[in-house]
């Protein structure tokens, strides 16, 4: 199976390790991964800040870049939700504005074949034990757009539970937002920081050394808060845990 890695602009720029982990993991599972070099940004930040019309060319570009692939896999719940939940809405709104069906038709092919990484592993490849080894004490934070947008449910947890050596601790208040929220983190920084601090305190209470999530944007906020609060914990993307093996362990 040949899939396109939709890494997201944030991961490409700031978190290449996550991208390398996805490639390593999927290759190990027999998937042929391609990274279309023309990919940029799905437009989520534009859309969610109120710049829907600025997001439209980015969505069209996404469709051009990824349209030909059998499946599109992304290690980001929120960017995955952007394509699956919000691209259809963009098409509808364009229609409602009297601009016809063109945008909806352009975006339609990529919508159903875009998968968040854990969804792709569990639903498409049908695996929960990916042969990973990660001898650490981990707690898992389900990010909002993955949990409530895409409905990832217990998929990430099932994958983590099958990892050899991994001890999974329950995170109190797991389904509460960490406070990132894209531009919310800047526009309402007091509330955002307070939410982040509460999330970190809950994570600390588990005694885990690693906080794992399936979205690096949220981890950037949580990890940045951890650093400011000088906790001993570190944020790790789920792809890096699932890619880790006894032969090639992750840090």
């Amino acid at each position: 199976m040949r899939v396109a890695l939709f890494l997201t602009c944030v991961n490409d720029t700031l978190y290449p390790d996550t991208g390398r982990a996805v490639v390593k993991l999927l290759t190990r599972l027999g998937v042929e991964v391609d990274f279309p070099m023309a990919q940029t940004c799905c437009g989520q930040a534009h859309y969610n800040t109120g710049y829907r019309h600025e997001a439209e060319p980015l969505a069209r570009h996404f469709s051009d870049v990824f349209g030909e692939y059998e499946a599109i896999v992304t290690p980001s719940g929120s960017c995955g939700a952007m394509v699956r939940e919000l691209y259809p809405r963009m098409g509808e709104r364009a229609r409602a504005e009297g601009r016809g069906n063109t945008l909806a038709a352009t975006l339609a092919p990529v919508i159903p074949k875009t998968y968040e990484l854990t969804e792709f592993l569990v639903d498409v490849l049908g695996v929960t034990d990916v042969g990973a080894y990660y001898p650490h004490h981990v707690t898992y934070h389900p990010t909002c757009h993955g949990l409530r947008g895409l409905g990832l449910a217990d998929r990430p947890r099932r994958l983590l539970q099958a990892v050899k050596g991994l001890e999974l601790a329950e995170l109190p208040g797991a389904d509460e937002c960490c406070g990132f929220g894209g531009t919310f983190a800047l526009k309402n920084s007091d509330v955002s920081a307070a939410m982040g601090a509460d999330k970190v305190r809950n994570a600390e209470s588990t005694g885990a050394e690693v906080l794992c999530a399936a979205d690096n944007s949220c981890l950037m906020h949580i990890g940045g808060t951890m650093a400011r609060l000088s906790t001993g914990m570190r944020p790790v993307h789920i792809a890096e845990i699932l890619a880790s093996t006894e032969e090639e362990p992750a840090r």
Binding site: L14, Y15, S189, M220, G224
Partner: peptide, 24 residues
């Protein structure tokens, strides 16, 4: 405006190269 971020959160460290350079 960036102060709103860095007052309460450390900035992420940039990698030595973006993913796309590694891929290429």
């Amino acid at each position: 405006p960036g102060k709103a971020w860095s007052d309460s959160r450390a900035l992420p460290a940039l990698p030595s190269e973006p993913f796309r350079d590694w891929w290429q």
